[in-house]
Design a binder for these strands. Structure first.
Lengths: 150, 150
DNA sequence: TTGATTTAGGATAAAAGGGGTCTTGTTTAA
DNA sequence: TTAAACAAGACCCCTTTTATCCTAAATCAA
């Protein structure tokens, strides 16, 4: 159906929350979940996957929680999506060369490869540092508008 | 999960089969299904949707079947995908402006919009006339290779 | 007109995947 | 030692996908 899973949506919000945390202090997953409006238990599980992949660092025990494990500009949207969903293949024939027997004669195969390349490149270019910046700009604009000031 | 449905895959193969039929004669759905290696009953149902959308023309009765209802270069991959899957939205927030309350402050929204635009544009550009041509080139190459001739 | 053939449309069912909770265990600060 | 927090996995429910099947309607030919 060509659509982002909730899992990826939640994980992205969670990472964006950490990236927007200037001090870089540890934040517990429940607080992140509350702030981002996502199911806490589910987010906790998603963060496990992110921790395993090395994008976030987990701290156990009281005062525990999560922080980013690297600077936000080194983490792309694609990184997080693939961490929780697994690798993206627009079609099964793209899983690996030779997976589909029709590959050598199927003209659609090349179209999928091109489409996937375009999509992945785009998602690879979007990193969380940029996201935080444009998020701040957007919410500033929204606040100004709401207050009726210029 | 960001992947093409079988339904769309089958429908595309079916339309490609019709597009590759130079004479433009009516072909019954069962024959198309056999030739393309897809479930016959399922393909028949998918073609109903394509007929409703006006991409193929159906002929009932003996010697009945399907033909393209327009020239293949006027039909894009996106047309067929959306005919059987419905409109593509990479994320729910893209269903319509205002669907997501966070839209005015959410920085990810803009990324999705961009990604979707890129993907849809690409699929819109791929039409079945081109597909047939590159399919013929590919299978010619494959045949040559198999025979060991140059 | 009758019968054969083919699509139309809807009901239904099986399988898979997505979305989420819960329980139990482990780590660690106080 | 205790309580707070993550880790890991079992488990469940719901929706969607992927079909199949049956009856009806259209069409052609004998």
């Amino acid at each position: 159906m060509f659509r982002l899973s909730r899992a990826a949506e939640y994980a992205i919000r969670g990472v964006a929350h950490l990236a927007d945390n200037k001090g870089g202090e540890v934040i517990e997953s429940e607080k992140i979940a509350k702030a981002e409006g996502v199911p806490a238990a589910y987010l906790a599980k998603l963060f496990q996957a992110l921790a395993k992949k090395g994008f976030v660092r987990s701290v156990r025990g009281p005062e525990g929680g999560f922080t980013l494990a690297m600077s936000p500009e080194r983490i792309s949207l694609l990184d997080i999506i693939e961490a929780v969903e697994g690798p993206i293949h627009l079609n099964d024939c793209l899983i690996r060369p030779g997976y589909c027997q029709r590959e050598s004669i199927c003209p659609v195969h090349d179209v999928w490869r091109g489409a996937q390349e375009k999509l992945l490149d785009y998602l690879k270019e979007s990193n969380f540092a940029d996201l935080v910046v444009s998020g701040r700009v957007k919410s500033m604009r929204a606040r100004r508008k709401a207050c009726g000031t210029k």
